[in-house]
Every structure is written in structure tokens, then in C-alpha cells.
């Protein structure tokens, strides 16, 4: 076995060390934010917190969870992410299947593909889009957060590339059995494409979880903001050159610890989902299992 050879062992030692260091480098900022969220206000505002909390306390979390807007926006985000991912994946997978066919099998595929790819680059900008949403009466609805982004062309192209790797023999067997396209997609393509589907679902999920601008512009009521939009409000620094700042107000804006706690709580769900999806693309079991 290759992994018992000496050069490979040396490589392994290096590899483990390197990846461990890399992981630490990636986690440091998060630990820093976590430390701030558990710190006292004064040291946090003066940037005296490193990787360990100073004046440890849980006040920031209590304040965050006490804010009803936070919980509301969390709920909007959950709805948006679940529904948005689902709809987007259905639309994308449905379209990617025919587009993964060869020209000879589906002549219009080239036209369709370019039709979609074109929209990756060209768009009319915010103004006509805003007018459109208004005319569709979609202002302040969950749909405005879901439908416009449902056709994720990037995901579609990746999906069609993954579909192309499905062994042709499987499809032909299904065709001979008299299966239609939809059945072929569901019973042949989907099971062998689970890693891809898990990956692209993750992309869609992360996209929905992190998007904040559409919520800000199209939700006419701040109660309907998804979490990412809500968090933006908290993180952005206010410019005092324009407002009559009074010392009484300033208490509210200087809550660096609360900001840190909210960032962390905002990230938590998506971190939690990751390991669940991870098993689909860490192990190369899927195709092997089908092949048997």
C-alpha cells in the first residue's frame, strides 16, 4: 500500500502539520470575535481583547437574544433559506438535466445555455428591477428574496457538468426500460449526483443566508428583514458628522460586544448545517455504491 512507503509518511507528517496550521490561521479571527462577545464593554471598545475574553460576562448574549427583532429576522432568514434553496435546486436541477445532453440529443441546448449564461454578466441594474418588483406586487414579500435568485446559473453550469459524469450505461439502461426523462433524472441521475447536489445546495443555502441587500431594498418594513440584513444594521458604524449626536444616544451605538455576539449567533446555524452536508462529499462512496 502506498501510504506505508517512507516518502509518503514524510509527506504525511508535513501534510498534517501544514493543514493544522492552516486551520488555526482560519479560526483565529473567529476566536477573537468570540472573545469580544464574552468581554466587558470598556475593554472591547478600547480594542484590548485578544483571543481571551477580558472581564468575562454573558451580557452581550442576553441582550442579543432579548432583542425581538433579532429573533424575527432569524425566522425570516430560516424561511427564506429553506424555501429559497429548495426552489432554486428544483429549478436548477430540472434545467441542468436537459442542458447536460449533447447537442445531437437536444439541439436547443446551446441556445438555452447561452441564454442563461448571458444573464450571469448582463443586468439592467437596480432601477428597472425595482420597478419590475413593484409592478409584480412583490414588494415586502418573501418571494422577492426567493424567485429572482432562483435561477442560479453558476450552480446550473456546475450541475450540468456533474450530470455529464453520470455513466452513460446507466442512462441507456433506463431508456431501454422505457423511463421518461423525468424518471431518468430522478432514479438515475440524482442518486449518483448526491455529492454535487449537497454541494450546490450548500452554495444556495449560504447565498440565501448571507444576502442582505435585497432585504434592505425590497422589504418596506424593517420587521421583515432577514437576519443578514438585520446584522448589517448592527455592524455598520454610524457617521456622527450628520446627526446631532447627544451623549445619551451614544450608549447604544458603542456595543461592540453585542455586535460580536450577533455575528457569532448569525453564523452558528450555517456552521451547524455544514457537517451534516459534509458527509456527502467527504467520502467517495456514492458512485461506487451504485456501480455494484
Amino acid at each position: 500500500m502506498y501510504y506505508k512507503t517512507k516518502p509518503y509518511r514524510i509527506f504525511s507528517i508535513f501534510n498534517y502539520t501544514f493543514l493544522a496550521v492552516l486551520s488555526i490561521l482560519c479560526i483565529i479571527p473567529l476566536i477573537h470575535i468570540l472573545a469580544i462577545s464574552f468581554s466587558g464593554k470598556a475593554p472591547a471598545n478600547a480594542n484590548l481583547v485578544g483571543l481571551l475574553p477580558v472581564d468575562f460576562n454573558l451580557e452581550a448574549y442576553a441582550k442579543t437574544l432579548d432583542n425581538e427583532n433579532f429573533l424575527k429576522s432569524l425566522w425570516v432568514a430560516v424561511q427564506r433559506t429553506t424555501l429559497g434553496t429548495l426552489i432554486s435546486m428544483v429549478v436548477v436541477v430540472l434545467a441542468a438535466y436537459p442542458l447536460s445532453k449533447e447537442n445531437s440529443a437536444f439541439r436547443r441546448r446551446n441556445f438555452y445555455t447561452w441564454f442563461f449564461v448571458f444573464t450571469m454578466l448582463f443586468n439592467g441594474g437596480l432601477i428597472p428591477f425595482y420597478i419590475l418588483i413593484q409592478n409584480l406586487n412583490m414588494m415586502n414579500t418573501l418571494w422577492v428574496l426567493i424567485l429572482p435568485s432562483a435561477v442560479n446559473v453558476w450552480n446550473m453550469i456546475l450541475m450540468l457538468n456533474f450530470f455529464r459524469r453520470v455513466p452513460r450505461e446507466l442512462e441507456e439502461a433506463a431508456t431501454i426500460d422505457g423511463a421518461g426523462h423525468v424518471r431518468t433524472l430522478i432514479s438515475v441521475y440524482l442518486p449518483v449526483s448526491l455529492p454535487a447536489i449537497a454541494t450546490l445546495s450548500l452554495f444556495a443555502m449560504v447565498f440565501h443566508w448571507n444576502s442582505w441587500f435585497d432585504g434592505l431594498i425590497f422589504m418596506t418594513d424593517h420587521k421583515n428583514y432577514p437576519l443578514a440584513t438585520f446584522l448589517q444594521t448592527v455592524i455598520v458604524q454610524q457617521d456622527f458628522s450628520k446627526v446631532s449626536a447627544r451623549p445619551e444616544d451614544l450608549e447604544n451605538i458603542s456595543q461592540r460586544t453585542v455586535k460580536a455576539a450577533q455575528i457569532f449567533i448569525g453564523m452558528a446555524p450555517i456552521l451547524f448545517v455544514y457537517p451534516l452536508l459534509q458527509r456527502f462529499f467527504v467520502k467517495g462512496i456514492v458512485i461506487g455504491a451504485v456501480k455494484e
Binding site: V92, P98, F106, R108, T119, G180, V182
Partner: peptide, 13 residues
Amino acid sequence: ALDGMVLPALILT
């Protein structure tokens, strides 16, 4: 049938 599968994405786009 293949056209039909593209249709939802087409309309949305």
C-alpha cells in the same frame, strides 16, 4: 419533455 424541464428556469430568467 426536455424543453419542458428548462421552462421554469426560462420563465424566471
